[in-house]
């Protein structure tokens, strides 16, 4: 193929996602031969899987120590000096959560995120700016979607009469279409019957 023809194909928007996907896939598969290993020196390290629940902690798997409103939990962020009340959120439990933790050891997930807990500390405090962005992304896409549906795709004002007329015009204007419809009708019924059996 001549290179010009190839380049012309690249100018069609429809081909671009596919080309992008293809190049991304190639790079991903190259990743399989790259030597990879997890660096054990990480931020916000968590205990081994199931360790806390096996020990029977009431708020497993999110127990990071600390006492409610008095002692901060243990937490290991990048810049501890930028966060003045570090660990307090991790150590905090709402009264309701405290009550639930006293009755059963199996509700740790719910308890430690209501509100407070480690993930909340990261989401709202040490990396709160990320969450602002994430929720802004959410908000923006909903603005786009709801604007489109309120003003266009779901807009009842241009519904009913106009669309019906369009349909009618489309059918009545073209006798050819009508004839085809009739012809195909029979064919389709026959096929449908065959398929049902």
């Amino acid at each position: 193929m001549r290179i010009g023809v190839l380049w012309n194909k690249l100018a069609d928007p429809k081909n671009i996602p596919r080309l992008f996907a293809f190049s991304l896939g190639i790079i991903l598969i190259i990743g399989l031969i790259v030597p990879m290993a997890l660096n054990p020196d990480q931020l916000y390290v968590r205990p081994a899987p199931q360790e806390q629940i096996d020990e029977g902690l009431a708020i497993a798997p999110y127990d990071r120590g600390g006492e409610v409103l008095s002692q901060p939990g243990i937490i290991n962020p990048q810049y501890p000096d930028n966060a003045a009340s570090l660990g307090m959120i991790t150590g905090y439990m709402s009264p309701l959560a405290q009550w639930i933790s006293s009755i059963s050891p199996y509700f740790g997930t719910s308890i430690y995120s209501s509100p407070g807990g480690l993930v909340d500390e990261i989401l709202y405090y040490t990396r709160g700016f990320d969450t602002i962005l994430e929720s802004s992304i959410l908000m923006m896409s909903f603005i786009i979607a709801s604007w489109l549906s309120v003003n266009y795709t779901m807009n009842r004002k241009n519904d009913e009469s106009e669309i019906r007329e369009d349909v009618k015009k489309a059918i009545s204007d073209s006798t050819k279409v009508a004839r085809e419809v009739k012809a195909n009708d029979a064919k389709a019924r026959a096929k449908q019957l065959r398929r049902d059996n």
């Binding site: 968590r46 899987p49 199931q50 798997p61 999110y62 740790g108 997930t109 995120s113 993930v119």
Partner: peptide
């Protein structure tokens, strides 16, 4: 679940 990312799982 195996990573204990339970909130993410929810």
């Amino acid at each position: 679940l195996c990573y204990n990312h339970v909130l993410a799982l929810l």
